[in-house]
Each structure stands twice: as structure tokens, then as C-alpha cells.
Design a binder for these strands. Structure first.
Length: 893
RNA sequence: GCCGGAGUGGCGGAAUUGGCAGACGCGCUGGACUCAAAAUCCAGUGACCGCAAGGUCGUGGAGGUUCAAGUCCUCUCUCCGGUACCA
């Protein structure tokens, strides 16, 4: 009995496609064709296998690709694996087995599942970030970044060899030059805190630390500085922000990225604190006068000096309202500014702050805390002394790590001032922006006002509006050498090293002296020596020191000798983000062992035309990848300033009860089980039918059953289920479609084509259901109409479409059949039904010719039997006739 | 708190961007087929009033603009996602 049986036809067609290499993409787009690069965010191959969320985006791009091939486009549609990651390393620590073994087993499982779903990937391009042949080029790109400095004037990255060396540096000798260059590289080293857990003998990621103790085992964790690699993504902040305007991304995601970059403009201002030895205010006023005249000559200093506290503010117009200052607990001036009586309290406070993670510092700190240093700074605009406090609501990592506090016009400062009874001086008059009562409170320092207004208590500036004041005072400060216009970003430089084994090794060598100590000189591994593979380890257990696990690599790996010099390899590894920053480029030329990607191929296929993935990567992955891409663009490796032209975020698939799917809730749907019961076509179709791609939507088993029923109906439309052998339904006839049949067919073609273009797959499927409903009711179904329908169905449910296509007598795949074209002449209705309203309420319907104009429409409505009845004795005030839509009579009486 | 997104039948969701609200699917009800069930097919299915013809209400809530509002404006409530003292 030839019933619809996905379990037999799906493997059959998957084997067919593989054997005939149906979906292998050309090396270059075929001449004269449009190119389409459709990309899925490649998965991390976890041990749990594919989640139902994965096939959602994957099916969407697959539909687009399959349709595009039939429309004659050159399509590249690859898949791979983002396979570095912590779980494999943890498994390795537990079992002693190399993480590669588990990683490859997981990849094999993912590959099986992906193939089971019938995606039209070009599997010959498959790659994994853990492939040595791949990360060789990840390392190569790192070296490009390492070899680049950012020319702020030209706003672009340039080779380090082109970095101008100032004369004083040049005079200081070669080491000074090298140090100067290293300081300017986009990849540079710094000391940054890590979460060191002595009990586990390893460094933990932020997610692994909860409330100061390790998530695993519950051991204490301390934050300690360690040498790390940073990537200067902040140098590209402006370009990363500006270039968002040119890409076709959801506005929400663009906004998310803009906020993440968080550009703000304001001023840096120096507050005089006196030379280190002179201490607090006593003799300071004399020093202040001296300093003022010195600054008048020198102007604002490029780098901050020891005799001033440099602050950043977005509100230089509130300078007269600064009643205290705050520096971060980690600020280098804390000790020198703390007077003896405050020393104990200060030490306790700093220790406490150091023990807190960034998270604790914000989330738990409902109440503001801080300690007075005992010292004062002098406000450059009026010479008055301002007390300096230390408080952890000021972050060392933003701006200068120091602020002037203006409690009258900043919520946080206001809160702090109330807590510690500090004076509050209003310097912005809100005017009528608030109620008169509130205005009085603001001016009395009893209420905080952060908006714009008019300057008050600000000397000669009184009366200026906020915007004017900002501008005026910033230039005044600049001319006196007290301040300058400044820009800041929330975006931080990218901490690029991890203390892990299972990641890309850095292609960096540290020079050693005769005693085996690092000289501080660093060199890149020569390009021809790439890749730097991971070394053999006997086991993966932590060695108990904060240094990365690679520190216990064998000497022949760890200590290479080049030109007679002994080096120690960099033992940090790259974070998981690294591999996903450029995989879209490698997919275009995955086996090239001469270059990362052939520039001719790159130019032909880039940018990615459609990039689909989860919104969880809306910020970091996309920002990091864009950053790398821009560096590669500046260095001439790629030809486009942006990698991803159109971006779509698929919505989350929730459990049946509208909650997140999770193991602990026990509501996880396994794609293997769905395929076993209903087949891959039903899974694909259901995930597309659930609702709009971008929306979050709950899973429904009955819904899966529903689309499965549709595929069954489509099957019976064409196949005689009751026959002994596979044969077409007797209703299939070889004749021209009638006008009605053609109208249904061509409307279906029109809507499905348009819906695929706009990624409205749910409505496309509805249209195909309407088609089957119509033809199921027909006892004659023209073969040509059925064939067109199968072509429309094939991107969504490719296996069953192929099988039915074959049943209709075709002996090869429909994957390259021309996409059906809708003929507008055939979609036209002869006559249409028009609603006739009285005062906006439908009172009758009339049948008119389809291209009846407004006048004729109104006339037809007036003469309608029911209308004449209803309009009797009423006055028509106005008649509105909209051709093709409705007629509305506005009546009185 | 701030920033996004969304609220439409019993459920998932459609609605030429201002023009007949509820396409399509699920579920439900009735019928056909069957000894029976499943499957399948046919019909119905927003609520309320009515024997019916027909009418009234109806897109989270309250106002407004308009001949006409799910769609535009103002206020407001709820849910989801992101973010967290960025000076």
C-alpha cells in the first residue's frame, strides 16, 4: 500500500542528493547569475545533540536557498561546527581522554542529525573551528591583528611598521621602540584580573563563579591579576557604530549594538590635588595658583599628571555644582590621597571591594557605600576645595575612574550625598520642565533633576541653556588648559585570552634570557611555521598554578629555539569567540592551504546576503566578527567593510506551556523523536508553520500532527493510496487547467513566491494548504498544476516533493527545475464581492466586475435592492467608494 | 530602573499598511464510512440576543483623530527578551 511513509522516502532522497552532489556549490558564482550567500549560525556541538531551536533557522535558510537555486541563482549554503568549548575540556579533565575525541563524536552526531533533516548544505565545505587546518588561519588572522595599529586620524588599521615613532622614543633605543610598538598594537598584553580558585587549582570563567565561590564544589575564589591578551576593539567603536546604518538588520538589534558600544561625549577635566608630597589642602591654594598659570602656558596635558585628579563628565555644565568627588577603589591615587585617620577604614573598604565580583558590586549594592579619603581637590572653575571620596559605584574601567559628583543633577550622586550628608547645590534650573513645586525642591537641593535647563549658581555662565553652556565651558576649560572635549564608550577592550587547554594556541613566543627568564620581548611565530597545534598532554588535570594549563606542556613544545634563541610559547589560548569570528570567510574556500580565503573568491561571494541565528548572539558574536572583519578589510584581506548584509534573528521555541525548554523542566523536544514519528518534512514544515520566524512561539505536538496531515493530503492528491503499487491518483489528468484552476494555481505561485522572499513561511504554507483543499475537492487535477505545486512545496518539504515528482514520471531531482512563474493575467478574478456599508457598518454585499471603478461601484451600491430599502427616507451626506474594497454611505435621518 | 518586542476566538496565528477582523492549522460539535474504533471525507464553529430574517458587542484597558481604526495619536495595564550605578 503506497501510503506516505517518510521513514523510507527521506533516507532515499538524502542518499540521492549525496550521490548526485545535488547541492555542491560552485567555486565561483556562475557568470551572469545572481549570487546568494545564505548562512546559518553554526552550532556548538554539545553532547545533547540538536535542539528543536536549531532546525528553525536552518529550515528558513534552506527554503530560501532551495527556492533560489530553482530561480537560477548561484547559491552557497555551508554548515560547520563551533567546536572549541569548556564541556569537552571538563570531560577531558575527568576522563583523561583528549577533548578532540569527544568533540568529534559530538560533531558526528550533529552531522547525522542535520543530514537527517534534509538541509541542502554543501557538505564538502564543512569545517570545525577545532580543525588544525582551520585554526591555522585563525592564528594567522590573530597575527594580522597583532601586526596592526589603529591610525585614529585616518580611522583605519595600518601595519605596525608604518607606526610613526616619536623622536624621544627613537632616541631611547630599540627596546623603547619595540615597547612603543607593542603599546599600539591592536593585540597587546596587559594585567587583568582572573578568578583563581586555589582549591580547584584552576582559573574560572565569570559564569562559573557565583557570589565569590566556585559553582562547582563551592570553593572560595579570589580575583588576581594575570598577564593577558587584549584586543583593541574600542579603536573601532565609531566605525562599528556608524556602519550599522548600511546593513539590513532589525532596528532593535542595531540599537542593542549602539547601546552596547555606548558612545558618550563630554569633557575631561583636571582637578588640582597638589604634588604628592604636599598632601591635602593647607598650602594648596598657593600651589593651585601656580598650577593654573602653568596650565595656561602648557595647555591640557595629553596624559594625566600626578598633581591632578582627572575626571570624565558628560555634564561639564554642572561643574559649579560639584560638591564632592569620587574615585574608584582601584584608582592608583587612593593611597596617596588617604589621610592617616582614614587609612584603616579605607583598607577595609578596598579589601571588601576587591572580594566582590563586578556582578556583586552592582546587583547587591542597593545602598551606596564609600569612605572619605580625607583629601580635597580644587575645582578649577571656582577654586573651591572639594572632598574626595572612594566609592565602588565608580568603576575603574570607565572614563578615568574618577568623577566629580553633582548630586543635584545625577541620581547616583544624589543618593550617595543623602547617604553621607554631603551638600547638594543646584546649578541647573529646570524651568517649566517640572511642576513649580518640584522646581522649588530642585533649586533647594531637595530633589534631583537630570534633564536640561538653564544654568544657575554658575557665575558668569548663569542663564545659559544646558547645550550652550556645555559647549562654552568646554572650550573655556580647553583654553585655560583645565580640560578638553572627550568621548567615551561603554564598550571595553576585548579580553582575548583564556586559561584553558581546549582553544586555539596563540602564535606568540616570549624571548628568554640565559637564565630562562622572559626578557619582555615578544615575537610572532613566523607565518610559515603555522599552525601551532596543541601539544600532547598525559592528562588534563589542573597543575595547580594560576598559569594556563599549557604551562605543563612538554618542553619540546613549550620551549622552541629559533636562530639560536630560546623562547617560551604563549600558554594562554583564545576564547571560543575567535573561531566564529571568521568562519563565514573560510566557508568560501575551505581547503585552501595557501591563504585564509582566495581574494577572488571572497570578492565574488561576500558579503553574506542572509545570516540567520538566535538573538543571543545579537551583541557579542556579531560585534566581534564585525571587528575582525574591519581589521581584515583595513589590511586588504577582505573586500567589504561589513560581513553580514541582512540579519534575521529567529525567535525562541518554547515548551508547550510557553516556558523555556530546559532539561530541568523536562519539556525538551528531541528532533530525533519527531523525525522518527512524523518525518523530517513534517518537522521542517511545522517549525515554519508555527508563526513568524522572528517570534517566540510555543511547541505543540498537535500542531506537528496537523502539518503531517497536510503532507498526507498532498500525497493523496497525487498518489492512489489504495492501489497495490505506487501509482498516481486517477484524478490526475493530462489537460489544460480551467480558468478557476489556473487562478488558484497562479495565486498560490504568486503568494508563495512573495512569502519566501519576505521570509513569511507560515503564510506561504497556509497558501499551499488552500491549494490542496481546493484540488482535493476536484475530481480532475491537471498534471501541470500538480507539478507546479510540487515545485512550490519542495523547498519546505523536499523529500516528499521529490518522491511525488518522481511519481509523476520524472527521473531526476526537482532541485534545479525552474521555479514556477505566476501569470498575472491568470490570477485575476472576473467578479468580486464588495461590502456596502452605512455609517461604517456592513449592510449588504454586491457582486461587481473586478475592475469596476469608484463611480460605477457607487452606482451599483445605490441600486442594490437591500440598499435602496435601507436608504429609503435617509439623506446621504457622503458616499465613499474604494474600488476593489468597499462602499460606505454616510447618512442622516 | 532603563532599552527593545508583544498583547487578536478554547489554542498557534492571518489581515494590500487605515477599508468586510478571525485566512490557514489545531481543538471542539454534528454527519458519512465502519460491527466498532482509528484513519479519512463532508458540514459547522468569536460572544450575546432572536424561531427566523436580522441585530448588538468584539483585537489588554481608557480616551482621541477619521466616512472608516487590530492598524494612526495620547494615557495606562500585563507578559516576554536584553541590560545593570558607564558619570
Amino acid at each position: 500500500m503506497p501510503r506516505y511513509n517518510p521513514a523510507t522516502i527521506e533516507p532515499k532522497w538524502q542518499a540521492y542528493w549525496e550521490k548526485h552532489q545535488t547541492f555542491v556549490a560552485p567555486r565561483m558564482p556562475s557568470p551572469g547569475t545572481e549570487k546568494l550567500y545564505a548562512l546559518d549560525m553554526f552550532p556548538y556541538p554539545s553532547g545533547d545533540g540538536l535542539h528543536v531551536g536549531h532546525p528553525e533557522g536552518y529550515t528558513a535558510t534552506d527554503i530560501v536557498c532551495r527556492a533560489a537555486r530553482m530561480q537560477g541563482k548561484s547559491v552557497v549554503h555551508p554548515m560547520g561546527f563551533d567546536s572549541f568549548g569548556l564541556p569537552a575540556e571538563e570531560h577531558a579533565i575527568k576522563t583523561g581522554q583528549h577533548p578532540r575525541i569527544q568533540t568529534e563524536a559530538n560533531i558526528a552526531n550533529f552531522r547525522r542529525q542535520l543530514k537527517m533533516l534534509g538541509f541542502s548544505y554543501d557538505w564538502s565545505r564543512e569545517l570545525a573551528t577545532t580543525d588544525v587546518g582551520y585554526f591555522r588561519w585563525t592564528q594567522w588572522i590573530f597575527l594580522q591583528i597583532y601586526d596592526t595599529w589603529f591610525d585614529a586620524e585616518q580611522q583605519r588599521g595600518r601595519p605596525i611598521a608604518e607606526l610613526p615613532i616619536p623622536d624621544d622614543v627613537r632616541a631611547a633605543g630599540e627596546d623603547a621602540i619595540l615597547a612603543f610598538q607593542d603599546e599600539h598594537r591592536l593585540a597587546h598584553q596587559t594585567e587583568a584580573p582572573v578568578n583563581w580558585c586555589p582549591a580547584l587549582g584552576t582559573v574560572l570563567a565569570n559564569e562559573e563563579v557565583v557570589g565569590g565561590i566556585s559553582e562547582r564544589g563551592g570553593h572560595p575564589v579570589v580575583r588576581m591579576p594575570l598577564r593577558q591578551w587584549m584586543l583593541r576593539i574600542t579603536a573601532y567603536a565609531d566605525r562599528l557604530e556608524e556602519d550599522l546604518s548600511g546593513v539590513d538588520w532589525p532596528e532593535g538589534i542595531k540599537l542593542l549594538q549602539r547601546n552596547w558600544i555606548g558612545r558618550s561625549t563630554g569633557a575631561e577635566v583636571d582637578f588640582y590635588i597638589g604634588a604628592e608630597t604636599s598632601g591635602a589642602t593647607g598650602s594648596a591654594s598657593a600651589g593651585f595658583e601656580k598650577w593654573k598659570s602653568a596650565r595656561a602656558k602648557s595647555g591640557f596635558l595629553r596624559k594625566t599628571a600626578d598633581d591632578v585628579l582627572r575626571i570624565y563628565t558628560t555634564r561639564p555644565d554642572t561643574l559649579f555644582g560639584a560638591t564632592y568627588m569620587v574615585i574608584a577603589p582601584e584608582h592608583p591615587f587612593v593611597n596617596r590621597l588617604t589621610t592617616r585617620d582614614n587609612a584603616n577604614a579605607m583598607k577595609a573598604y578596598r579589601d571588601q571591594a576587591a572580594a566582590k565580583s563586578d556582578l556583586d558590586r552592582t546587583e547587591l549594592a542597593k545602598e551606596k557605600t564609600g569612605v572619605f579619603t580625607g583629601s580635597y581637590a580644587i575645582n578649577p572653575v571656582n577654586g573651591s576645595p572639594v572632598p574626595i571620596w572612594v566609592a565602588d559605584y565608580v568603576l575603574i574601567s570607565y572614563g578615568t575612574g574618577a568623577i566629580m559628583a553633582v548630586p543635584a543633577h545625577d541620581e547616583r550622586d544624589f543618593e550617595f550625598a543623602q547617604q553621607f550628608f554631603l551638600p547638594i547645590t543646584a546649578v541647573v534650573d529646570p524651568g517649566d520642565a517640572v511642576s513649580p513645586l518640584e522646581r522649588g525642591e530642585v533649586l533647594a537641593g531637595e530633589r534631583c533633576f537630570v534633564g536640561d535647563g538653564t544654568a544657575a549658581n554658575s557665575g558668569k555662565y548663569d542663564g545659559l541653556c544646558t547645550a550652550e553652556f556645555k559647549e562654552t565651558i568646554t572650550s573655556d576649560l580647553a583654553s585655560q588648559g583645565f580640560g578638553r572635549h572627550a568621548v567615551n564608550y561603554k564598550l571595553r577592550d576585548w579580553l582575548f585570552s583564556r586559561q584553558r587547554f581546549w582553544g586555539e594556541p596563540f602564535p606568540i613566543l616570549h624571548e628568554l634570557d640565559a637564565n630562562g627568564q622572559p626578557t619582555g620581548r615578544v615575537r610572532a611565530v613566523p607565518e610559515e611555521d603555522l599552525p601551532v597545534d596543541l601539544p600532547h598532554l598525559d592528562d588534563f588535570k589542573p597543575h595547580g598554578r594560576p598559569e594556563p594549563p599549557l604551562d605543563k606542556a612538554p618542553d619540546d613544545w613549550l620551549y622552541p629555539v629559533i636562530d639560536g634563541k630560546r623562547y617560551k610559547r604563549e600558554t594562554n589560548t583564545m576564547p571560543q569567540w575567535a573561531g566564529s569570528c571568521w568562519y563565514y570567510l573560510r566557508f568560501l574556500d575551505p581547503r585552501n592551504d595557501q591563504v585564509a580565503v582566495d581574494p577572488v573568491i571572497e570578492k565574488a561571494w561576500m558579503p553574506v546576503d542572509l545570516y540567520v541565528g538566535g538573538a543571543e548572539h545579537a551583541v557579542l558574536h556579531l560585534l566581534y566578527a564585525r571587528f575582525w572583519h574591519k581589521v581584515l578589510y583595513d589590511r586588504g584581506v577582505v573586500s567589504t567593510p561589513e560581513p553580514f548584509h541582512k540579519l534575521v534573528n529567529q525567535g525562541m521555541i518554547l515548551g508547550e506551556n510557553n516556558e523555556k525548554m530546559s532539561k530541568s523542566r523536562g519539556n525538551v523536544i528531541n528532533p530525533d523523536a519527531i523525525v522518527a514519528e512524523y518525518g523530517a518534512d513534517s518537522l521542517r514544515l511545522y517549525e515554519m508553520f508555527m508563526g513568524p520566524l522572528e517570534a517566540a512561539k510555543p511547541w505543540s505536538m498537535q500542531g506537528v500532527n496537523g502539518v503531517h496531515g497536510f503532507l498526507n493530503r498532498a500525497w493523496r492528491l497525487i498518489i492512489d493510496e489504495h492501489a497495490e503499487t505506487m501509482q498516481t491518483n486517477a484524478a490526475i489528468v493530462d489537460r489544460q487547467p480551467t480558468v478557476d484552476e489556473n487562478r488558484v494555481l497562479h495565486k498560490t505561485i504568486q503568494f508563495v513566491t512573495e512569502d519566501i522572499r519576505t521570509l513569511s513561511f507560515n503564510t506561504a504554507i497556509s497558501r499551499m494548504m488552500e491549494f490542496t483543499n481546493f484540488f482535493t475537492a476536484q475530481t480532475e487535477r491537471p498534471r501541470a498544476a500538480m507539478e507546479s505545486f510540487l515545485l512550490l512545496l519542495s523547498p519546505f518539504a523536499p523529500h516528499v516533493a521529490e518522491e511525488l515528482w518522481q511519481a509523476l514520471g520524472h527521473d531526476c531531482s526537482l532541485a534545479r527545475e525552474p521555479w514556477p512563474e505566476s501569470d498575472p493575467a491568470l490570477t485575476k478574478e472576473q467578479s468580486i464581492e464588495i461590502a456596502v456599508q452605512i455609517n461604517g457598518k456592513v449592510r449588504s454585499k454586491i457582486i461587481v466586475h473586478a475592475d469596476c471603478d469608484a463611480k460605477m461601484l457607487e452606482a451599483a451600491a445605490r441600486t442594490d435592492e437591500r440598499m435602496t430599502e435601507l436608504l429609503l427616507g435617509k439623506t446621504i451626506v457622503k458616499a465613499i467608494a474604494v474600488p476593489g474594497r468597499l462602499v460606505n454611505f454616510v447618512v442622516k435621518g
